[in-house]
Design a protein around this nucleic acid. Structure first.
Lengths: 96, 96
DNA sequence: ATAATTTGGTTTATATTATAAACTACTTTA
DNA sequence: TAAAGTAGTTTATAATATAAACCAAATTAT
């Protein structure tokens, strides 16, 4: 009746990150930080987890002389996000 | 952009409990346990938290000789559930 | 030139949360 | 009356999230 919710996505900040990345080609650390309002430390950790899960890729380079971390959602990430939304609907709609 | 998600409801088991209670007049411990597949211990703890938050009421009585714990959602609980669903929609729909 | 501040993060420690294991108390069935 | 089942609670442990501290380089101010 209640499907298991993907624990990687069932996290406020990670869900926000995936949600952002699902809508754009790619996004860098600073942009995601501004959009989410997260602290650097928290964001760094959660990005690592999404990366370890294979839901996003992280590319480190430079914009001029400043370091720049660019994130992009993967196919697996898009699929997981879609599954999560579907599963969650079971919970949200049960009270009807 | 991303609203804060109520931490009381942003828990797989507590959300399932609220979701069940939102659809019925009341439900007892055993019924909720069967529907969710949760262990007794976990369910007991999460019901306590929902109760402490004022989202449900818990009534202890007896069905014949056996103890029976009946849960019911409160107005505050219904409101919180509604708010949670609305907030979550921001996350789920952002990738479109 | 150099000192202070900002950018762009990582690492590590702590607090919170969820889960599982162990236990209590009573009832029913063999 | 002994074993097994019901209906939970309490406590311990594992997992998670968050915050604090730190690092390195670049930029800006003195």
């Amino acid at each position: 009746m209640f499907p298991k919710l993907d624990p990687i996505l069932h996290s406020e900040l990670r869900l926000a990150v995936i949600s952002i990345l699902a809508g754009v080609e790619d996004a860098d650390f600073s942009f995601i930080k501004k959009q989410t309002g997260a602290t650097s430390g928290n964001l760094s950790v959660q990005i690592d987890k999404l990366c370890a899960a294979g839901y996003i890729t992280v590319e480190k380079g430079f914009k001029g002389k400043m370091p720049r971390t660019t994130c992009r959602i993967t196919e697996a990430g898009l699929q997981a996000f879609s599954n999560y939304v579907t599963a969650l609907q079971e919970y949200l709609s049960a009270g009807k």
